[in-house]
Design a protein around this nucleic acid. Structure first.
Lengths: 128, 128
DNA sequence: CTCGATGCAAATAATTTGCACTGAT
DNA sequence: ATCAGTGCAAATTATTTGCATCGAG
């Protein structure tokens, strides 16, 4: 894979943050360094980089896709109040895939799971 | 809630099938009985009926939403080859919500999980 | 040098919305 | 009679694509 200046900037940015940015956010941030970059290029690169396994795409139903520089397998929770995405590393769901395989006689390739939560901060705010 | 002719037709159709139709499919089917119904009305009613808990919305990342007349809590698998949606009734994930609550100190409201599978039929076809 | 990558703008896909009218309660 | 619901068309949102040009290997 060629590493154009744009591709490198996009990869560096996604790898440098823990905020799970959307394509639009990546675009705005990379534009600080490279004002000529186009949104189409950002989309094409985020596609390519996640296909190649250098970053992870987080697909959340009815929301913009987000991207994660962390490629270690893990799940995500999203706060329904503030929208923050929270990493969940310790929840191993492999056994559930096995269960489903036996249950519906299907080969399970993967699963997409998102936990809809209220984060500690928003929970506290709600109590006031 | 008022039950207009359109709302009743949409509800009846979704309740009558096990195919997890999209809004567009519902629109096409209901139009057989009521050629004047509009797509906007179908979207508005599917929204309303799922908010009211009379039907279930199935949110699949990067795909059209689907709707399920079955309101008993259950999960779904989607075949990556033929796109068929398969119901999974016996897989209880409540304990996982509890696990996540303890793990990230969040209140877990719900989760959205989709299993990406190859269904038995497509698996067989692939072997030929 | 070559072909994959880019910038730009237009296109697409799914869904939502404004508005005047209609019909269920 | 009222106001939620409707049909229609235009708007919106997120993303993708065509095309001429550019630049990394």
């Amino acid at each position: 894979m060629k590493f154009s200046r744009q591709r490198q900037q996009i990869l560096d940015y996604v790898k440098s943050v823990k905020t799970h940015p959307t394509a639009e956010t990546v675009y705005k941030k990379v534009r600080d360094d490279n004002p000529n970059i186009s949104l189409g290029t950002v989309y094409r690169n985020l596609d390519k980089l996640s296909e190649e396994g250098l970053i992870t795409r987080i697909k959340i139903a009815n929301q913009k896709d987000r991207f994660d520089g962390d490629v270690i397998p893990h799940s995500h929770a999203i706060c329904e109040k503030c929208g923050k995405v929270i990493d969940i590393y310790t929840c191993n769901l492999d056994s559930i895939d096995k269960f489903v395989e036996n249950n519906i006689q299907c080969k399970v390739l993967s699963h997409d799971i998102i936990f809809n939560v209220i984060c500690p901060k928003c929970n506290k705010d709600g109590e006031e």
